[in-house]
Amino acid sequence: MNERVKIFLEGDMLERYLMGRTSPMETQEVEHYIDTYPKVKDTYIELQENLEEYASSYAIPVPEGLKEEILKEVRTKPSKALPVLAITACAAAMFFGVMTFMIFRQNQELLEDRQLTSTLIEQLNDDIVSNRESLQSVEEQFMILNSAATEKYVLRGNRRARKLETVAYVNALEKKSYVNVVSLPELPEEQVYQIWADVDGHMVPLDILKITKENLVEIPYEERMASLNITIEPKGGSEEATVDNLVANISFNQ
């Protein structure tokens, strides 16, 4: 007998192959021996016969009803199971699909948040500019009011408007005028209070008076103002003062 075959048969690889307990490489080796050497092939056939005979000698009648159970189970199960790899691939694809969608949604939300934040920042910048302008205006008013060149005039209502009280500030140096409407009696909806400057005998319209959140409202400055006058005029104001409706007046010569 070939020495290699002898060594091979003395080992236990053929018996392990019989029992299905060889590694893929060992399986290849055993099958090579079986295909190449008739002695190995005969031994393998003999081993299989021995196995069947030996196992059959321990045969025990199977419990009744088991065949029906097995046939029932075989019929209910699909003849070919869906390959595990295909199921895994589908599951992985679904997982990544869901993840991608979630990341996309998250990204969209972040973009929306960024847009919102940009808008807020723009609004805050606008507010800062507006506040600076307001602050500048207030500082300017404060400077003027504190200026020695600023004259303060209090206009009080006559009998027709007893509760009317307005304070006017005039700075001839800076050429600025402001009024602070302290209180105004109510008027019908179609009428308003209008303030005028008497310039060279002509009543020049300055502004419509109303109570505002801001205490001080700038009104046009007129050179050579002799007096300030408040009249009741139709809604929207008039070009010419209705002298009959004069409710308050203060002369700068007082």
Binding site: S56, A59, V62, K67, I70
Partner: peptide, 14 residues
């Protein structure tokens, strides 16, 4: 399966 059972089930059960 039916034939396998009839011919081999006893030995395999053993």
């Amino acid at each position: 399966i039916s034939l396998l059972y009839d011919h081999y089930a006893d030995a395999l059960y053993g």
